[in-house]
Design a protein around this nucleic acid. Structure first.
Length: 313
RNA sequence: CGCGGGGUAGAGCAGUCUGGCAGCUCGUUGGGCUCAUAACCCAAAGGUCACCGGUUCAAAUCCGGUCCCCGCAA
């Protein structure tokens, strides 16, 4: 079966890899976003899926927009049987989704209809869910509203970050996708419409979503740190040497202990304790602007003078 | 030429503006104290102040250049 893969970032790579190595499926094209400048030196870098595709001599397509007619013609000429979409990065017009005879299949890392939209994994962590999952579904014109072919649940614990959750998704998602495709194509799988309850849509995450509000509870801040790791990352600001410096927080734990000091106050007490709106956040790994990432112990050794200072917004 | 911070003992940092004995919090080693300890006291070892050149009686510090690390932005 000939398949075109729509996907762009690292998240899509394990899925593409699994499909390439699948016997029944032949990837005849990869559609991804354009090469973009990355890093301090603005090196033009191809998307992760493009790199993998080139390695396997698969044609790569990077359209400015999918709405143009010549795009439709180009894709039609490939005559693929199915499109598979994993984190492509843009909305794909219905006219394109309808081209292949088996339609277009999407992977969404949540238990749909819960957490439709762009940030399902982050939202599950922010809400402290004990469980999330992966859904394999047919694409329709709505935002993650298509009928579901298969779902699998994933357990979340209180240490999971976006990074570890992504690993869990990658551990089960790709093989579930291949299995579901084969069952669907051979008629063993019937799409089931999504339930109409609990259909809130997650929002696109901004850079500034990582800014910590110390008036929130320690539990909420801990979740924020885990959900936004590694991007955009949780951060706050601190005054040092008469400058306002960004302080990134990579890992923390929390305790119920309520400090009497104002929210955002730093106390060195073997650990870096920060007062919050409710409870105390214990920072374990952090990075000061211009410095390397380090653990709390090392940070305290060199910054004993900021004991008692306030973190700011 | 996108903006900015940094490189000083094993770790984390101050000192640089205003040139004048290489410092701080730890760690390590040895000793002491203690029923005991990650506590406390005493002592010691440990430095190419990133690299190259210049100015100076004198450079971590001032000037020129090079390399490396990092934050922001895109």
């Amino acid at each position: 079966m000939k398949v075109i893969f729509f996907g762009t970032p690292d998240f899509a790579v394990p899925f593409l890899y699994k499909l390439i190595n699948s016997d029944e499926i032949k990837i005849v094209g990869v559609v991804c976003q354009k090469d973009k400048p990355v890093g301090r030196k603005s090196v033009i870098t191809p998307p992760a899926t493009k790199t993998l595709a080139i390695k396997h001599n698969i044609p790569v397509y990077q359209f400015n927009s999918l709405k143009k007619d010549d795009v439709k013609n180009t894709l039609s000429e490939i005559n693929a049987d199915m499109y598979i979409v994993v984190a492509y990065g843009k909305i794909i017009p219905q006219s394109i989704l309808d081209i292949p005879k088996f339609g277009s299949i999407n992977v969404h890392p949540s238990l749909l209809p819960k957490y439709r939209g762009p940030s399902p994994m982050q939202e599950a962590i922010l809400n402290g869910d004990k469980q999330t999952g992966v859904s394999i579904m047919l694409l329709d014109s709505g935002m993650d509203t298509g009928p579901i072919l298969e779902q699998i649940s994933i357990d979340l614990d209180s240490n999971d970050t976006y990074i570890t959750l992504e690993k869990k998704v990658h551990a089960v998602g790709p093989s579930l996708l291949v299995k579901t495709i084969n069952e669907y194509v051979s008629g063993k799988k019937t799409p089931v419409n999504q339930a109409t309850s609990d259909t809130a849509v997650t929002r696109l995450i901004n850079r500034t979503d990582g800014l910590i509000d110390w008036d929130k509870t320690a539990i909420q801040i801990d979740r924020q740190i885990r959900a936004y790791k590694p991007w955009p990352g949780a951060y706050t600001y601190i005054n040092m040497h008469n400058k306002k410096l960004r302080l990134k927080i990579f890992a923390a734990t929390f305790s119920e202990k309520q400090n009497k000091t104002k929210s955002g106050t730093i106390t060195f007490n073997k650990a870096i304790e920060i007062s919050t709106g409710k409870g105390t956040l214990l920072i374990t790994e952090l990075q000061l602007e211009g410095k390397q990432k380090m653990n709390a112990d090392a940070f305290i050794k060199g910054h004993i003078d900021i004991n008692g200072q306030m973190l700011i917004k």
